[in-house]
Design a binder for these strands. Structure first.
Lengths: 361, 361
DNA sequence: CCGTTTATGCTCAAAGTGAGCATAGCTGTC
DNA sequence: GACAGCTATGCTCACTTTGAGCATAAACGG
């Protein structure tokens, strides 16, 4: 497969020959061999399909996790996942759907690919002599229907794993109390090699310190920085030299199996960004809803509160919804009109999202 | 690796046991085996790293391609690529950089992952009994420096491969003349299974027919639709039943090796989207430039022309650039002030891009 | 020195946004 | 059963952002 034909006229230089030779050498196997066999010195690669399945229940953004018995103590949460098997899966996404169906008994609706991670060591499990795994992360959006009885999965708030991302009641406690001092300590360390961007500056931008604004979309950047600084358990588990002893004490969020927390971070960042320019928020909503329920769902995802009147102006003005004609009683006050998603917007020019910015309540 | 521990309390149902069994069955190997061996009935997967390296020279958006001698007739263009080898590459991206360096003698600067494609059959080459390949596409942005002497690569306009994407001189000829009738014919065919969105509607949205607006970011959607409709050579090559005989005649753009044209389509769509919200356009610019040169570069990427005065207001107003103090003579008119990219914006809140919309010249 | 050509400054109206005030219409209570 | 307490909705207003153009500045080539 990866055998590359020399360009017309044959090989032109030693370097070129080397390049082609190298191509073969580092390839696990060559397409002409009918029955695969692993050559000495090469490593096979497995492809893991991982799903961050997100929903919102009761104003809480939740993710579907599978609880596993860890090797020694306690349980570890993980995302539904399984290997890509080209013989059984026509596409990567269909493979993912198959796995999710098997593991969680759930038929996925909306799903999109997030990112493919291949870092050596980031897929480790304690005591696990694992081969090389490339993880493909997916984001799926769904609703939690009461009828949904899941076999092994549980819905858990994503802020469980990322407490510092929860800005619904203002700046989260844990940031000030625990993370800021540790981050500053890490930032003030001498680095052996000079960095293009100082640790100081990176911490400032990622965590909105010293006057920098908090960017709710930088979820992955924050997680990766914490990993690099050795402040979260996964860093210690993967054997990062930088892993601190104090990473264990008041731990920062609940860790996950393999690199699943990284995938979840990617997922959160992606939803937060995406609902602003694509109408994916409606994947999380029931057929009929009030505008305030919609707003609460957006807020659950984004964190900060939105200006109510402007929110409805925006949503109605963009033609994202249409009234069903019904009203919902017992809202605690005046009854609220019910709306439904206008599917037609998907066929209109830029298929807009909920272009919101944080504002006053 | 993919062996999943049963949840606490053991297996709870037959279905669960099946699921775990299934997990193992479709896995190439299990982590407890120290020396890997491929079990019968499983298929190994190779991971291909592919780079769409984009630059702009003389108002032409170009991509770095490697020309290969095809199996029978003519030459085929391909992107620089090679397999991911976990023993040699610490990360996917470093593997990509290594391959590009080897194949094109080029040190990559800015690079970002695009997408991972795994469709069966889309990686075929005529007469190639290939194993299953999962392609990871990357987008890299660079400048074409005169000193750059490449071994085997050539820079080619990306509109070479996607003539229908070239709107710099208005709606491209080929759309009206060749594509529209073929697309309409395909859209009017009966489909065996009812579609959630009609072919009619998809064609209308993708290609801006019947009053729909042309969305310059839907590059991949258009390419995939053409593939599905059997209107491009790759479809015939991959043996799609739908491939038409007339896909050969006045062919639609130059085809590429494997699924490289799909990767390039993804890349074009991504740059077009990204320059609007991240300052990546400067990766394509020399250190000093005039605002009009910057505008021309943006236009080369996006297609349509921009309103000159508003463009400069936007770029200056967003603090993306600062004057160097020098001027460029011989512009054909009044000398133009030279500017440079203000790197500091990368450290400012949302690190904006060139939020432009097509306008009057 | 003048016409041509590109660079730059500035204006203006329309549309979009952030904040709030004010009113409507349930529900539960005394 | 009038009122207090809430949430839903309508609407205003000042301020920004954006789309289009007019007008002036400053080289360059005859």
């Amino acid at each position: 497969m990866f055998r590359v034909k020399p360009p017309a006229g044959g090989l032109h230089s030693l370097e070129e020959a080397m390049a082609y030779g190298q191509l073969r050498e580092s390839t696990a196997r060559v397409s002409s061999e009918p029955e695969p066999s692993i050559e000495a010195g090469t490593a096979p690669v497995e492809i893991g399909l991982n799903a961050a399945i997100v929903a919102v229940t009761g104003n809480e953004p939740v993710v579907l996790v599978i609880r596993h018995e860890a090797d020694s103590a306690g349980a570890t949460d993980g995302l539904p996942f399984g290997p890509f098997s080209p013989l059984q899966h026509r596409t990567l996404e269909s493979g993912l759907r198959a796995w999710v169906h098997r593991q969680a008994g759930l038929e996925l609706g909306y799903a999109e690919q997030l990112y493919t991670f291949g870092d050596r060591g980031r897929h480790a499990q304690p005591g696990d002599l694992s081969p090389h795994v490339v993880s493909i992360g997916y984001l799926a959006l769904t609703q939690v229907k009461p009828s949904m009885e899941m076999q092994h999965g549980v819905w858990r708030s994503w802020y469980h794993y990322f407490p510092w991302e929860d800005w619904r009641r203002g700046r989260p406690e844990i940031l000030e109390a625990t993370m800021e001092p540790r981050l500053r300590e890490w930032a003030s360390e001498r680095t052996s090699v000079p960095q293009p961007v100082s640790r100081q500056e990176r911490v400032r931008i990622c965590f909105g310190l010293d006057g920098a604004a908090w960017d709710e979309e930088k979820v992955l950047e924050r997680y990766e920085l914490l990993y690099e600084a050795g402040l979260i358990e996964e860093a210690a588990r993967d054997g990062r030299d930088a892993a601190r002893q104090w990473s264990q004490r008041p731990r920062l969020g609940v860790p996950m199996q393999y690199d699943h927390r990284r995938i979840l971070a990617t997922a959160i960042g992606r939803v937060r960004a995406k609902i602003k320019y694509r109408p994916v928020i409606f994947e999380l909503m029931p057929d009929d809803f009030t505008l305030f329920e919609l707003q609460r769902t957006v807020e659950a995802i984004l964190g900060p509160h939105l200006h109510k009147q402007n929110f409805r102006r925006l949503v109605e003005g963009a033609g994202l919804v249409e009234p069903t004609g019904d009203v919902k009683m017992r809202t605690g006050g005046r009854p609220a009109k019910l709306y439904r998603f206008r599917r037609e917007v998907l066929m209109e020019r830029p298929a807009p999202g909920v272009r919101v910015k944080p504002g006053k309540v």
